[in-house]
Design a protein around this nucleic acid. Structure first.
Lengths: 337, 337
DNA sequence: CTGAAAGCGCTAACAG
DNA sequence: CTGTTAGCGCTTTCAG
């Protein structure tokens, strides 16, 4: 293994000089710098991560805590995770992947050991068990999601209330008057991750001011469950002409079942989805949708957490502005009668 | 920050004793051990990762290199990654997530810096650019996938040839004589990840000995592309009664299109998929399938890589036995005529 | 603009 | 069964 001392010797300078060439924390003459850099290249030197961490008490690692239940939202979560890792690298940070498995204890372990300089938590619940430990640790952290109490925390999330509102607005603008919302599985509401509630709350508020009638039905995904939900909706509200879906696994079944029921999309029924771009685009119909901006969430999370590590930022709540993209699944409400 | 020295002092023992209590590398009297453990708990001590890595030249971190193109196979890859992280933790290892973005250079960086004790590479291509660096580094590594040249490497993968063979066998056993294979997108074959070729090779070989006629068509996923592929297949081979699909994004479109074409599954047409369990189970028809055993691959990868770190194992190629699960998409070939 | 030297917190001989 | 001690490779004062 080639060490900093080896490089120093090879270059005919002191160890500290090499260190400073690497960190750029003090001015080095061009000649010296070049000599050192040549030696580094020739010897194939790589600074030892452990030694560096010990001496500087900085690991240059960000811990990323994945959701507890990896059964849902896999694509978005994956996209966010990858984007976080990629973006973090561009700032010189690596990302350590923690699974939900280990539970809140992971926070203590990672933070206590100095393994990571900071944490990013995904899939935050309203009363998340990890938060007390986090606050108490005083370590830099960013949450993706919005817990009940955000004081002392930095959070990044989509403004789901506004996302819901946009859906209502779009359908209202097309002349729809009766709309049905197909929500996440009941389990999601029970877990209290918050985003599902925020969506329907925002949607309802805007719907009210626009004079829309709204029926909300949480639903499991898959064809069988959706068939039931759909039948129920049309029995209860036969004049429903607009659907809003917020459930990745319900999207394609919904479209398929409408087709089976001889309801043309978008001629008879308009559908708006709140889902990842990919899901909206790859199905049998290109869906009008509000996307979950995974990359942008990742970007904000990384940049804020690094700002915190470097003591350049305090706590704040960042709600990303949703955007509705019109595609082939929504159109003017059919002329009633 | 509370250090090992603090614990030692608090417990009235030497630093090394505390260290040995932690590592279990020498016998400690029950009294001493207890006193030390109490002190650790009372002070809330956590060993410093950097110091540990420096002194022991072991980081207890495994680097996991994700695929270059995260556009495909997202669910399987994610499942494998999560399973690797979870399983690694149970052996006291953390997992560092490297994206494909950084390229082969990441191998050099991680290995050179001692950041990780070993690497696991996902989505290995036949002539993978990371392999030369890996071999030359001499660091413990496990590949998920099978490159062209495996000497000096440990590889874990599904036996895709046998998976293909099982599909042929299953359809032949049901009396099918003409089968069509819908493969991955042409790009996948061009990338030379190998698994797609191995599947079709294995399938063809078995088909030959069973007297099956096979038509192989790589295809993009999605409805539009599949509609074209399907039309072509039925034009070329109108008597096709069995389908094998190896393309996550083509599965649901295939089923939907067959239904649209008034071909009943499984009465007229049988479909066998090579895909993740989840995809096989959650669509509109429960598919007979050969699953990609993500968990098991993760388990093998982790256990082998740790065995290598601890110098308890050499190189080897592990091909997991595929299993075909019969579900609702396959049945006896229709009586011809 | 550069060196010398003192640790960072832990592990692992070596010594008893 | 336990203690003493010499580093691991780097960063960062302090000194010039």
């Amino acid at each position: 293994m080639v060490t900093l001392a080896d490089v120093a010797q090879h270059a005919g300078v002191s160890a500290s000089t090499v260190s400073y060439v690497l960190s750029g924390k003090r001015t080095i003459s061009a000649v010296t710098r070049e000599r050192v850099e040549r030696s580094i290249a020739e010897l194939g030197y790589h600074p030892n991560a452990g030694a560096r961490a010990l001496a500087s008490s900085r690991s240059n690692i960000i811990a990323l805590m994945m959701p507890l239940r990896m059964d849902m939202y896999v694509p978005v979560m994956t996209e966010i995770a990858i984007a976080i890792a990629t973006h973090a690298r561009s700032f010189g940070y690596d990302v350590l992947m923690l699974t939900g498995e280990e539970g809140p204890e992971a926070v203590r372990r990672v933070v206590g050991s100095g393994l990571a300089d900071a944490m990013i938590l995904m899939d935050v619940e309203l009363e998340d068990a990890r938060l007390p430990l986090l606050r108490q640790s005083g370590r830099p952290a960013v949450l993706i999601g919005l817990p009940a109490e955000t004081t002392g925390l930095t959070c990044v999330d989509l403004d789901f209330a506004e996302a819901g509102a946009l859906c209502a607005e779009h359908l209202a603008g097309l002349g729809h008057r009766e709309i049905a919302v197909i929500g996440e599985a009941p389990a999601v509401y029970e877990r209290r991750t918050g985003f599902a509630e925020r969506t329907i709350d925002g949607l309802r508020a805007r719907a009210r001011s626009l004079g829309l009638r709204v029926l909300h039905r949480p639903s499991e995904g898959g064809y069988a469950a959706m068939a039931g939900t759909l039948a129920q909706i049309f029995t209860e509200r036969p004049d429903t002409t607009g659907f809003v879906v917020q459930n990745e696994t319900a999207v394609e079944p919904l479209i398929g079942l409408l087709r089976q029921n001889r309801r043309a999309v978008p001629e008879d029924i308009s559908v708006v989805a709140v889902c990842p771009e990919q899901v909206a685009v790859q199905g049998s119909v290109r869906l009008t949708s509000v996307a979950v901006p995974a990359r942008e969430m990742a970007r904000h999370a990384v940049e804020h957490v690094i700002a915190k590590i470097e003591d350049r930022a305090g706590d704040q709540v960042v709600l990303l502005e949703p955007e509705l993209t019109v595609r082939a699944s929504s159109g003017p409400a059919p002329v009633s009668g």
